[in-house]
Every structure is written in C-alpha cells, then in structure tokens.
Amino acid sequence: MDIYGFNLEHGQQTGGFIWIYNTDEASAVNKVIAGWNVEPESYNDSQTHFSTWFIEGSNVCPDMRCPGFESVFSSEIVPGMVISPVSTTSGKKQYITVRVSKDQNSGDWQIYYGFNGDAKLAGYYPRSLFTSLSDKPVTILFGGYALRKDQKPSPPMGSGNAPFKNAASFRSIKFFDAGGNAHPIDFRLGFISNCYTISVIENDGFFYGGPGNIC
C-alpha cells in the first residue's frame, strides 16, 4: 500500500490498513489490524507510522503501548515507528508491504512488514490473546480510512486525491490459504465507500481516497 503524510490536528486520523476480525456473540469481538496511519492524538506528532492493533472484546491494544505484540529480534521495525520517506503525488511512490497470517502450528497471528520491498516477519500476537479469532472463520477487510472527532474537518484519505490520477493504491493483493499458498485477488469484491472514492479491483489492485473537508 502506498504511504503518505499529512499535517493533521488532534482529533483527526487517516491511513490504510488490513483488518482481520471475527464476531462471535458467545465470546467477544476479536480483531487484528496492520498498516499505516497518521494520528496526532496517539503519537503526539503528525508523522506517518507503521501501526498494528489487536482487539479482544473491550481490550484495545495499539502498537507497543500495552502487552500483546511480540517483536522478533531480526525485525528492523516495531509497531509505532515512523515510516520515512513517504510518497508525494508529484514524485516517487513509497510503499509498504503488509501481510497478516495465522501460524498453523502455534495459532499465533503473525505480522509481516516491508518498506519498498518484500515483507519480513516483524512479530506476532500470541494465540492466548484471543478467543473467537483463534479458531473461528474470519472476515478480511482492506483499504483506507479517515476519522474525525467533534467539529474537526474530515482529513484526506490515501494521497488526498480521488481515483484515478495520483490516487493512493493497494497493489499485488493476495489471499493466503491454510497451506500458505498465495492466490491473487483479481476479481471484484464488495466494498464500503463513505464520502471518499474507491475503484474496483483490477490487476490485483485498486485505487482509493480523496481530499478532506468533504463530509
């Protein structure tokens, strides 16, 4: 996914993520989330960060700010670190490769990350953190998001441009089955578009985003 930077205020957020979640009414909502975001309220800056979250019921744990994520020694990045440089609409696109997968032996949820290259294992969320996500079917979402609080203006999403010219993109999207085999996603999926714009999936990718102050 392309990464971008914006000068946001407290109460504004923007970024791009993969969400994997399961809602089991007998237990609790479980989610694993990984991608990039700009969120001054959490980081006390307006830089672009690599971010990953887990949610188990009411327990919400972002990055390394609470126990949960286990880093591996070989990783060059930990959740919450700044990503630099970022893309510009008039220059080179910088991108991150993110993979979220469950280890079939341990049941841990692994987070892979790469900057302008292949993704390498950054760490994992132990199976013991989850209830329904450990052995239930999951739903997968991916794309951009933008949030605002109170009377703050809506922030840009993606590059700040709507598809297609100079818009942000997800590319080389793949689904990995239980055996670890990759399957390119080259067909149309259902999508949610609220205020911002998203294209259909073609050639294993799509464009998304738009300017701020639109809703």
Score class of each variant (00 low, 15 high):
Asp2Arg: 04
Ile3Pro: 04
Ile3Ser: 01
Gly5Ile: 05
Phe6Met: 08
Phe6Lys: 05
Asn7Tyr: 12
Glu9Thr: 10
Gln12Gly: 04
Gln13Cys: 09
Thr14Ala: 07
Trp19Phe: 13
Trp19Leu: 13
Asp24Ile: 08
Asp24Gln: 06
Asp24Phe: 06
Asp24Thr: 05
Ala26Ile: 11
Ser27Thr: 15
Val29Leu: 15
Asn30Ile: 06
Asn30Tyr: 05
Val32Lys: 00
Val32Asp: 01
Ile33Met: 11
Gly35Thr: 05
Trp36Asp: 04
Asn37Glu: 15
Asn37Tyr: 11
Asn37Ser: 13
Asp45Phe: 05
Asp45Leu: 10
Ser46Thr: 13
Ser46Leu: 09
Gln47Cys: 11
Thr48Gln: 05
Thr48Tyr: 05
His49Met: 10
Ser51Gly: 10
Ser51Asn: 09
Ser51Leu: 07
Thr52Met: 08
Thr52Ser: 11
Trp53Val: 13
Phe54Ile: 06
Gly57Met: 01
Ser58Asp: 15
Pro62Gly: 07
Pro62Trp: 06
Met64Cys: 12
Pro67Asp: 14
Glu70Ala: 11
Ser74Val: 12
Ser75Trp: 07
Val78Gln: 14
Val78Thr: 14
Met81Trp: 08
Val82Met: 13
Val82Gly: 10
Ser84Pro: 12
Ser84Glu: 15
Ser90Thr: 15
Lys93Arg: 13
Gln94Ile: 10
Tyr95Lys: 04
Val98Thr: 11
Val98Cys: 03
Val100Glu: 07
Val100Met: 12
Ser101Tyr: 08
Ser101Thr: 12
Asn105Met: 12
Asn105Asp: 15
Asn105Trp: 04
Gly107Ile: 00
Gly107His: 01
Asp108Ile: 00
Gln110Met: 14
Tyr113Lys: 01
Gly114Met: 01
Asn116Arg: 04
Gly117Ser: 03
Gly117Asn: 03
Gly117Tyr: 02
Asp118Phe: 07
Ala119Met: 05
Ala122Asn: 09
Tyr125Ala: 05
Leu129Tyr: 01
Ser132Trp: 08
Leu133Met: 10
Ser134Lys: 07
Ile140Leu: 13
Leu141Val: 11
Phe142Asp: 11
Gly143Asn: 04
Ala146Gly: 12
Leu147Asn: 14
Arg148His: 14
Pro153Gln: 06
Pro153Trp: 07
Ser154Phe: 13
Pro155Asp: 11
Ser159Trp: 02
Asn161Met: 09
Pro163Met: 02
Lys165His: 11
Asn166Met: 09
Asn166Trp: 05
Ala167Tyr: 00
Ala167Gln: 00
Phe170Asn: 04
Ser172Met: 10
Ser172Ile: 07
Ile173His: 01
Lys174Gly: 08
Asp177Ile: 07
Ala178Cys: 13
Ala178Lys: 09
Ala178Asn: 14
Gly179His: 09
Gly180Thr: 01
Gly180Asn: 02
Asn181Ser: 13
Asn181Gly: 10
Ala182Cys: 08
Ile185Met: 06
Phe187Asp: 14
Arg188Val: 14
Leu189Tyr: 06
Ser193Tyr: 05
Ser193Val: 07
Asn194Ala: 12
Cys195Ile: 09
Tyr196Cys: 01
Tyr196Ala: 01
Thr197Val: 11
Ser199Leu: 03
Val200Glu: 15
Glu202His: 04
Asn203Gly: 02
Asn203Gln: 11
Gly205Thr: 00
Phe207Ser: 05
Gly209Met: 00
Gly209His: 00
Gly210Ile: 00
